[in-house]
Each structure stands twice: as C-alpha cells, then as structure tokens.
Amino acid sequence: MKSPESLQTSNRLIWVERMARLMDNQFRFPGTQFRFGLDPLLNFIPILGDVSGFLLSCVILATMLKHGVSRKLAILMALNILVDAVIGGIPLIGQVFDFYYKANARNIRLLKEHYQEGKHQGSGWGLIIVIFLVMFAMLAGLIYLLVQLATWLKDLF
C-alpha cells in the first residue's frame, strides 16, 4: 500500500485528478457554486457523447488500477462508472443526471480515501455478492412484471 500522502504529491496520478476535474467539475454556472464538466456537455451528442464519456471514465479507472488499488475499490469505481453510463444514457433524464452524479469525482474521492485513510481495502467479495443479489431481485421483479403484463394483455383480447 502506498504511503498516506496527498494524491497531488503522486506525479503519476496527477493526470487522473486533472481528467476527473475536466470531466466533472471544470466549469461553474455564473453566479452560483454549481460546477459541471465536459461529461454532461458531451452527452448532448446522441450515442457518441455517452460512449466517449464512458470510455474516458474507463481510461481513468484503468490508470488507477495500474497504480495498485484494491479489488474492492476497483469494483466501487466501476459501479460508479456503470451507474453514470446506464442512467446517463436515458434521454432527457440522463442529461440532467449527468450534471449531478459526477462518477469521476466520486472515484477520485474513493481513491483519496483509499490512500489517505486506508478505506476500501479487501477483495470485495461481499460487495460482489450484494450486487448479484440485487441484480437477481431486480430480474425476478422484472420477470414478475412481464408475466403480469402478459396476463393482462391476454385478458384484454
């Protein structure tokens, strides 16, 4: 594990912090404290904007992985990127969501907690199990709703 120093002191990871800032917090609405980056602006370009933001987030994650983070932290970061990509891809809702969620800034915060406070250590198996249980419950709920819809449609005709 690296020493608990500021992320800024690690020359290898300054690029990661700068990219995350550019994607999530580079600009400010005049007269407010609300910050946003390129990610929500790119998402106004259908498909291409979503894909480019996702790929840049993946490159940032790959750089963090290259510099040695725990598997649990990598899973948490990947989940942030996945949530940002899935919900951000929904027309209209996704554009608004991207102004507020800021997956890259969240990942930088997680990375700092990892290095400075020793958080998010371990293999992440507990997190993986919870994710699969939630996904299974969502799938079961979706199947139930589809069966109910099919039954309703059958009774309708």
Rank of each mutant, 00 (worst) to 15 (best):
S3E: 12
P4A: 00
P4L: 03
S6T: 14
S6R: 10
L7T: 00
Q8L: 10
N11D: 11
R12D: 15
L13V: 06
R18T: 14
M19R: 13
A20P: 00
A20M: 01
A20G: 04
A20Y: 00
M23P: 02
N25A: 11
Q26P: 05
F27C: 02
F36N: 03
L38K: 01
P40A: 02
N43I: 07
F44H: 12
I45T: 11
I45G: 03
I47N: 12
G49Q: 00
L56Y: 04
V59P: 07
V59K: 11
L61I: 04
T63K: 15
M64R: 04
L65P: 05
K66Q: 10
H67M: 07
G68N: 03
S70D: 02
I75N: 08
N80W: 00
A85C: 13
I87E: 05
I90S: 03
I90T: 06
L92P: 10
L92V: 14
G94Y: 04
D98P: 06
Y100V: 09
A103I: 01
N104M: 04
A105F: 07
A105Y: 09
A105I: 11
N107I: 06
E113L: 06
H114D: 04
Y115L: 07
Y115N: 08
G118M: 01
G118R: 03
K119H: 07
G124L: 00
W125I: 13
L127E: 00
I128N: 08
I128F: 14
F132Y: 15
M135P: 09
M135L: 15
L139W: 11
A140K: 07
L145M: 13
V147R: 15
V147Q: 13
T151F: 10
T151V: 12
